[in-house]
């Protein structure tokens, strides 16, 4: 059961969410510890009614170096662990070596996305990709800066005029659809600059790409 579930999780999502989980675990522990320490101090040392207030011990001004070093050691080891895992998650950004990736161009403009297929086809607002294949998007813009993001696939990169940025993903399930959004303010149409991504099986994809006039991507 679990195996089936894992198999249908897109690899980019797998990488991102396990990294996020790790950060959440350490982040939550750190937050709970430090906030409890704070609240504990506030409650424990609160001044009570009728308590003798006259003489106040103002405490030492000396630095407790052991405590400082201890804090630094603990924090840096936690940071080291999570950062190491971030470095191990670089495959989210760097496309895998694949014998047969599908390269698609993406052009952002106020306020829609145009997809350029290897056969030269240009489609506005609709991206169709084959299931299970490595897809590489090369993204640019013809006007202002946009940011291309596929919700649910955990991938995104900016679209700048005069420059190509790329991202990769593999969508496992034919029949699933995703929403593409723009994440960088790009003018009044920013909230409406969406596109739909449809995942089809390789055969359907080949048939579709031929019906639009070109030959299957290479």
């Amino acid at each position: 059961m679990l195996g089936v579930y894992l198999a249908t999780v897109p690899p980019t999502v797998g990488i991102w969410s396990s990294l996020f989980n790790l950060y959440n675990v350490f982040g939550a522990i750190a937050a709970i510890l430090v906030i409890s320490y704070l609240v504990y101090n506030v409650v424990k040392y609160r001044r009570r009614e009728g308590h003798d207030e006259a003489v106040e011990e103002r405490g030492e001004e000396k630095v407790n170096w052991r405590k400082v070093l201890f804090t630094l050691a603990i924090t840096s080891s936690v940071l080291f662990v999570v950062e190491l895992q971030t470095f191990n998650s670089v495959p989210l950004i760097v496309p895998p070596q694949s014998s047969d990736p599908l390269n698609i161009g993406v052009v952002g403009h106020q306020w829609s996305w145009t997809f350029v297929y290897p056969n030269g086809d240009r489609l506005v607002g609709n991206l169709t990709v084959p299931a299970g294949r490595v897809v590489i998007l090369n993204i640019t813009s013809t006007d202002v800066t946009h940011s291309f993001a596929i919700t649910g696939l955990d991938v995104a990169v900016d679209a700048n005029a005069g420059r190509y940025n790329s991202l990769w993903f593999t969508a496992p399930d034919a029949g699933s659809t995703y929403t593409i959004r723009c994440k960088e303010l790009c003018g009044v149409g920013h909230a409406f600059m969406t596109a739909k991504m449809t995942v089809v099986d390789q055969a359907t994809f080949n048939a579709w790409i031929q019906s639009t006039g070109g030959k299957p991507g290479s």
């Binding site: 750190a30 937050a31 670089v90 960088e184």
Partner: peptide, 22 residues
Amino acid sequence: IIGGITGVFLSSFVLDVVFRGT
């Protein structure tokens, strides 16, 4: 404390792919 810890999340350039701009 909460703002600072979430800042550490954002410093992960891999996590930030999703966080950025949201």
